[in-house]
């Protein structure tokens, strides 16, 4: 349980770590990982009760990996690994689910599936907070964003937050935001090409004039901001 908000309301929290931080050679099966969601339960014997096993099985079935319960965690795909850890979190019956980069290092279809899964969990009443650096495929599709780079920079919907000025402050570099048919696209151009592009677009101006609130269409440098997204 953690206390949140100004009135200190208690909520049941579960955390899903970044899958890249997990030791995938650790000798545990998917079911054992899921049952760790109840590790804090007062129980003297090492084995889990039948009710917890049934519950774990139910959650795994719901997430579509019930048939993999007895498989070693190394023998799962990226999406299945992420689901196994979401299943462990669900064993705690969380009201608030925190996920650290849930789509890092997964393919397009897996990313799509994970976001759909989080969306449906959110509809079941679980508040979801996740971190991501993926602005186009993840951040732009979530209902609420919080941008943090050492301090709070902006909060709001993707339309409100994903603007050149916010992104510039967030990443410390200029970025391009394109809106097309209600869709947001955030792009960048390697700095080596920036001056060349600027000269081609505006031959009468010096390139530095394009930095700031209204960046040129292709101006960008590498940045290191964090975008936290909230669902629910």
């Amino acid at each position: 349980m953690v206390r949140i908000g100004s009135n200190g309301t208690k909520v049941r929290l579960a955390v899903v770590p970044q899958i890249e931080a997990i030791d995938w050679n650790f000798p545990v099966t998917v079911e054992e990982v899921v049952l760790l969601g109840r590790a804090a339960d007062r129980r003297l014997v090492p084995w889990a009760p039948a009710s917890a096993r049934a519950e774990a099985r139910e959650i795994l079935d719901k997430l579509g990996i019930g048939q993999l319960a007895h498989r070693h965690i190394r023998n799962l795909s990226g999406g299945q690994q992420q689901r196994a850890f979401i299943a462990r979190a669900l064993m705690r019956k969380p009201e608030l689910l925190l996920l650290d980069e849930p789509t890092a290092g997964v393919d397009v279809k897996t990313r799509h599936d994970i976001l759909h899964l989080l969306h449906s969990l959110n509809h079941e009443g679980i508040a979801i907070v996740l971190t991501t650096h993926d602005l186009n495929a993840v951040a732009a599709h979530l209902p609420s964003l919080v941008c943090i780079n050492r301090r709070l920079i902006a909060t709001g919907t993707p339309q409100e937050v994903l603007t050149p000025s916010v992104l510039s402050e967030l990443y410390g570099a200029d970025m391009v935001v394109i809106q097309q048919e209600g869709m947001l696209l955030i792009g960048d151009v390697p700095s080596a090409f920036k001056d060349e592009h600027a000269r081609a677009q505006h031959p009468q101006e010096v390139p530095a004039a394009h930095f700031g609130e209204q960046p040129p269409p292709h101006a960008h440098d590498e940045g290191a901001g964090h975008t936290h997204q909230k669902e629910g």
Binding site: A14, V15, I22, F26, E32, L36, G37, A39, P46, A48
Partner: peptide
């Protein structure tokens, strides 16, 4: 058993799970 397994396997988030 389960608490020791948790802090051995995934110590970073153990506290969030009540361990």
């Amino acid at each position: 058993y389960r608490q020791l397994l948790f802090i051995t396997f995934d110590p970073e988030v153990a506290d969030a799970y009540g361990v």
